[in-house]
Design a protein around this nucleic acid. Sequence first.
DNA 1: AGTTTAAATTTAGACACTAAATCAAATAGC
DNA 2: GCTATTTGATTTAGTGTCTAAATTTAAACT
Lengths: 405, 405
Amino acid sequence: MDKTATTPQALRRTNLRAVLEVMRDAGAMTGTDLIEATGLTRATVIAVCDDLIRRGWVRELEGDRSTGSQKGRPARRFEFNASAGCVLGLDVGMATVTVLVAGLTGQMLGRAAERFSKTADEAERRATIARTAERALAEASLPHSAVLAVGIGLSTAVDRHGNITKGLQLSEHFDIGLQTELWKEHGWPVLLENDANLAALGEHWRGVGAGVDDLAVMLAGERLGTGLIESGRLLHGSNGGAGEVGTLELVDGVGSQDGIARLARHWGTAALAEGKATLIRELVGPDTTRVSARFVFEAAAKNDPVAQEILERIGRRMARVISLLGTFLNPELVVIGGAVSASATALLPTINAELPRLTGTPPRVAVSELGDAIVATGAVRLALAYVEENALALTPAGAGQGVGA
Amino acid sequence: MDKTATTPQALRRTNLRAVLEVMRDAGAMTGTDLIEATGLTRATVIAVCDDLIRRGWVRELEGDRSTGSQKGRPARRFEFNASAGCVLGLDVGMATVTVLVAGLTGQMLGRAAERFSKTADEAERRATIARTAERALAEASLPHSAVLAVGIGLSTAVDRHGNITKGLQLSEHFDIGLQTELWKEHGWPVLLENDANLAALGEHWRGVGAGVDDLAVMLAGERLGTGLIESGRLLHGSNGGAGEVGTLELVDGVGSQDGIARLARHWGTAALAEGKATLIRELVGPDTTRVSARFVFEAAAKNDPVAQEILERIGRRMARVISLLGTFLNPELVVIGGAVSASATALLPTINAELPRLTGTPPRVAVSELGDAIVATGAVRLALAYVEENALALTPAGAGQGVGA
DNA sequence: AGTTTAAATTTAGACACTAAATCAAATAGC
DNA sequence: GCTATTTGATTTAGTGTCTAAATTTAAACT
């Protein structure tokens, strides 16, 4: 029943979409601008704009003749109504939940984060998530009705239809009825996606990967996951397992799913246990079991040879994975992101030195600048994509009343 | 200048495409069938069909009331005109060229193959290719004017726009003006693609991978290349290097770009040189330098332990690469194809035994049944995709006269 | 005030669709 | 052989959307 054939009304729908799309990423425009951009005639453009205004997706600006020609009849100026609604982007991790609120052009309007209680059961985790979302919405002064979609990133495999893949990895921690239970009273569309995939979306949207359509993002904090974008599209594989390097055989004496943070802690702890003379010991203090990645990176920055050796091992390890990505996917760029991404810059020399030896198509390597909002940013992007896809079927909640700047 | 907006005529174009597409993969249909399939009204369907007949893409069948109801006014029966033209699918390898001729529903109409002279220069290679294509067309009794598109598979990296990637591997052997020089007098659209990618298209179209939308095909003859399909789409990567495992680091004492055939020969020769007692020696005959893959597989089939050990090594090696594919791409199925694919069945037990140890998402593994037409079959598919995409812009050359069954 | 300029609107016409009535060609029953 | 029935094709009237061209509008300039 998937009819591809069309009626005359479909024509208008197509043109509504075309105009809306142009206006979304071009800001305020006159009718003439839109004629130029879409190839439609003036009569049509105006009709479509009036239609969009009526639907609430576009608003008309008053006065203001600052740009363009000063002569002739002043042009009506149309603008995508960025406050016709908002979306939520969530990063639901093992220990914490982060929520971003964004307007329809992606302007960030609110933010909140919270830790899960260690003993939390399903219902309690859901409650924590809901509470954090409420706080973020409150910060943005937005009503529930403004939310048009919710994107959620999870540390588990999710297939391309947004379904959690049972049996793969940590799904039981995340398969907690986020779609069916959490916001059923609001009826918000909830879109699930793997966290590394969202990190890739985030970087592709507003990170160092902006404009790069063949991209891999390694989400390397405690764990290590990879999000893959080819030709601007996210790759999932048949079970959403694409890029899930957790089971990679790397024969290094540590689990292959370990991210940068865990590796640094692991090897740092080992170095202390072996009694090596290193700055790490002083930085950590008396309780030598409390090594964290931060101390190792700090010691390395102060030229501590033991810490630097650890960083080199981590770098070689990353280079190994990146080289495989380069060989199989041939991305233009690989971005290292995640909690410790700020420190990851120290790994670049090692990685860049190793790569050409390991693959014939070495990608550029960069470090993310999105910090710990990388997944939530991608979640926002995912939700926005849904809204863009379904705009004409949705009703802008804030139509007419305006929902914040 | 990529206008997405539309005019009333675009509506008709959309419906022409929709109807044509339905008819292409459903065979002969009545107006009522098309109403059912497209959701359009009878008046529109008939108008569209008459339009398509006028353009030469569809023909009307006479008489024949075998199917459907016997009562009432007999329905007009429409059929996609499979002989409105043809396409060529070429496999241009290092040593040989293979050409397939196919009608627009993919029915094979002609075939020819030829070896390149060892001393051939660019112009001579082009001439051999042209001559082979002529022979295939002659076998199908088709005029030059019937050819609507040509797909060509090459053993070198090709990016997603069909451009050979300079500097990567064997490009100099294949960048011989196939698009600019070869058939410029006929004006045939020539589409270039990597051979492993075409193998993947071929398997996805008419091989064991039919219906599997997340698929990897390992083209493993003398060399080893991989074609990747995710969600039904071919992956290229930024330089067309995706799946080009030629530079993979596998630390086995042999080049990683080596395919099954070369590995068998390599290790078979080594076994003889080491003076091992093996059936291979007898099969090869007096000149022990002339080991070929065939002898090794034959000896293994006769339970020769040395040959079987070689097969296991090859199998483990393949499993290694497949496991990496499984980890990074998570395909549902991996198909082994290429010149020696018939023998590859002997490798399956080893591969299937190794895989679960190497990756958490082991794909199904199968052996291609397309034989040495695998690349040319994919080339046909590539050319057909072009014709389907551009059908309404093209003029069916055989319009009215019919160009073979 | 009149002219110029650029934009908006109106008007006429074209194209493509739907829905409903009518026409056409076959079978089935009497 | 005639009529009723069935099914498909065609015609007609009406609607929605677009373009192109003429007209109107609203400002700046002279």
